[in-house]
Computed example of a mutant assay.
Amino acid sequence: MSFRSITAAALAPIAAVAMVATPAPVEAAKPTIDLVEKHLASVRSMTADFTQTDRKGRSISGKLLMKRPGKVRFDYGRNADMLMVSEGNQLHFIDYEVGQKSSWDIQDTPMSVLLDQKPDLNRIARIVPSKNENVVIVRARDARRPEFGTLIFAFYRDNRAPGGLVLEGWTAIDAQNKRTVVRLDNQRYNVAVNDGRFAYRDPK
């Protein structure tokens, strides 16, 4: 089964709405955008397992590598014929089966929220009320670039994590209101990630 439509919808210039975790209870003050920015500023790198599911329930899993500023890799495994990767400036979706590469400036993609050197969310983001005080949901949408959609991340509180938050995942919504859910597990923060992991083979 091909998951190209899932990948392109989830990670190209689009939107996201988050999922909810159920962490252990902690003392939780009312969340603010500053709290999320503090977390992001504390994260130099992250690795995680991910599962990506489209609106038809089709799923694909892999490994996420992230290193700020600007570097990310969604690795679908050795046998995959596609790749989503940024070496620092541009986000590339590579389809090796057809020999094509699509690229966007990282600042024009939802991933810029996670990858900016100095995250500033106040202009484009707000906190969404959550029934669970240990879950922090952030909705981001750039009114000047509505074609990029709406991005909402879900974090859960964990005092052991950078800035007291762990990224749980997101859901992508494109201009046609199609949704793609990305869920993270086994998150590890501020671990060594070699820059060579963000290199890629050009499809041509």
Results as ranks from 00 to 15, higher is better:
Ser5Phe: 05
Ser5Gln: 10
Ala9Ile: 09
Ala12Ser: 14
Pro13Tyr: 06
Ile14Lys: 07
Met19Trp: 04
Val20Trp: 02
Pro23Phe: 12
Ile33Phe: 07
Leu35Ser: 08
Val36Arg: 07
Ala41Tyr: 03
Ala41Phe: 03
Ser45Phe: 10
Met46Trp: 06
Thr51Asp: 09
Thr53Asn: 09
Gly57Thr: 03
Arg58Trp: 11
Lys63Val: 12
Leu64Ala: 08
Met66Glu: 06
Gly70Asn: 01
Val72Tyr: 01
Tyr76Glu: 11
Gly77Lys: 14
Gly77Ser: 14
Asp81Tyr: 12
Ser86Gln: 04
Glu87Asn: 03
Asn89Ile: 00
Gly99Gln: 07
Gly99Tyr: 08
Gln100Ser: 10
Trp104Gly: 01
Trp104Ala: 03
Asp105Ile: 00
Ser112Asp: 12
Leu114Asn: 06
Leu114Trp: 15
Leu115Asn: 10
Gln117Trp: 00
Gln117His: 05
Pro119Lys: 03
Leu121Lys: 02
Arg123Trp: 07
Lys131Val: 06
Asn134Asp: 09
Arg139His: 09
Arg141Asn: 14
Glu147Asn: 07
Leu151Arg: 01
Ala154Glu: 11
Phe155Ser: 00
Gly163Trp: 12
Ala175Glu: 13
Gln176Glu: 14
Gln176Met: 13
Lys178Ile: 06
Val181Arg: 10
Arg183Ile: 15
Asn186Arg: 15
Asn190Ile: 11
Gly196Thr: 09
Gly196Met: 04
Arg197Phe: 14
Pro203His: 02
